[in-house]
Design a protein around this nucleic acid. Sequence first.
DNA 1: CACTTGACCTGTCCGC
DNA 2: TGCGGACAGGTCAAGT
Length: 295
Amino acid sequence: MPELPEVETVRRGLQELLPQRQIADVWFDWPKGFPNAPADVRAFMQGAAVRAVRRRAKVLIIDLSTEYSLVIHLKMTGQLVFRSASEHFGAGHPNDSLIGVLPDTSTRVVLTFTDGSKLFFNDQRKFGWMRLLPTVEVEQLDFFQKVGPEPLSASFTADDFIARLLRRKKSGIKAVLLDQTVVAGIGNIYADESLWGAKIHPETAVQDVPEAQLRELYTSLRTVLQLSIDKGGSTDRNYVNHEGKRGSYLTFANVFRREGQACPRCGTEIIKTRVAGRGTHTCPVCQPKPPVTKP
DNA sequence: CACTTGACCTGTCCGC
DNA sequence: TGCGGACAGGTCAAGT
């Protein structure tokens, strides 16, 4: 669901909207969604102005003027939706947002700014979380210490990618792509799409993929992630951007959620299987199942 | 150590 | 129409 392109889309939207706005009030109904919240968390945030909205992997970081930061993970069904004071919070909405009246039953946190605008953190399945901690401690979080490089950064090369994949050479390649310590930000959608692009079966052991195909995977992965950012991400069921609007990448997807349809490359019917515990979409002709790995 | 499974949740969809 | 169960999939912890 929210993977790198979706989180980046939200980040870009919020970066246009939030900086300089000052927090007037904070409401949250759910201790688990704010696991480190002290009793006086509101006092920590009231009066703070937003400095910038950053992203690392699938995590959003809202830096505040108080040297504290809000660290947010949307997990599967999290949404961050901004509404200005002139929009109608309680009686529908003025645009084509997929989200209606806010707050709704999935709203976990509401930030109210001094100009009356609000940021809603919705999360139907409550897997997501929001933490408040000193900005200097953000990068000390376990997750950030272990997470791999940003796949779209200019310094991330094909050689880096291949070297990191080969650290787990005996593992199935899809499981390795989904491992956030190998490369940051890839989830189920972009793992399937990039493997189709490079014509690699997701269960192939990394060591059994020819280097030329690993290079194709690097290109395919970066292309797919960038295209999705350009399209505002993928809306499967829950994902919406900062305006409550859907992303259109799935219109361009080749295999994800396209089981039973024709492979755009060869016309064979796309199949859905289960790999690494995830629903997995492949073309059985373009991505032939690998022979049994040699010991 | 590498890999798999379960837990965390709730809404939706399917079959009976 | 109701109901049970499978399913959706990011991440961590526990189990094999």
